[in-house]
């Protein structure tokens, strides 16, 4: 974006949801210290997600070419149900725990505005296609980790993390399918409307 001064079909809605995901998940940087790595990575996640949102909102060139009439997914349709579910389905009814659970549920669906935008914009830019592919792959690798830990560690069970991570990965499934086919047939990636 910085280099070409254009948003490449990246959905601002999704970027804002990700910023909210990390803001609600990493509240513990104020309460307890786990390790230097832990706090540094959290600050990187927060810094990068908020700077993308800031850049897309503030930078005059990016903002002008960002197609806001296409990226119209209403956040609240995702935020409200996730908040409600986090209030009902959590492991401990404390503020931190509910916020953390909310961030997991929200992360599972945060990609939806981006996928909708990709369906609407006919020609998907390579950069954006790769970006979404890697976001999905990151999640898929977590599932491999969970399987390994379930098999090797006694009582390693995290239903909330597993279910939201699984749903998140499933949302990418059709994108992976079309991405693979466009790569195999060496065609431009297009998602059916």
């Amino acid at each position: 974006m910085r280099h070409q001064n254009q948003p490449y079909g990246v959905s601002l809605k999704t970027q804002e949801l990700y910023a909210l995901v990390f803001a609600t998940r990493y509240l513990d940087i104020f309460t307890d210290y786990i390790s230097l790595y832990n706090i540094v990575m959290k600050l990187i996640y927060l810094g990068s997600s908020f700077s993308i949102v800031w850049y897309m909102r503030r930078h005059k060139l990016v903002r002008r070419s960002y197609d806001k009439e296409q990226d119209t997914f209403r956040h609240l349709f995702l935020i409200v149900p996730c908040l409600f579910l986090a209030l009902v389905l959590n492991e401990r009814f404390t503020f931190m725990e509910v916020m953390w659970t909310f961030s997991l549920y929200l992360e599972a669906v945060a990609i939806l505005p981006q996928l909708v935008l990709l369906q609407r914009t006919r020609n998907i830019d390579n950069l954006t296609g790769q970006y979404v592919l890697l976001l999905g792959a990151y999640r898929a690798f977590y599932i491999l980790n969970w399987i390994y830990r379930y098999l090797t560690e006694v009582h390693y069970v995290h239903w909330i993390t597993w279910m939201s991570g699984l749903i998140q990965t499933l949302l990418y499934a059709d994108f992976f399918y079309y991405y693979f086919h466009s790569w195999k047939n060496n065609e431009k990636l297009q998602l059916p409307a």
Binding site: R25, M41, E91, W100, H158
Partner: peptide, 10 residues
């Protein structure tokens, strides 16, 4: 819960 999970999963 977030306590035991946050240690190994960002």
């Amino acid at each position: 819960s977030s306590a035991d999970n946050i240690k190994d999963e960002l």
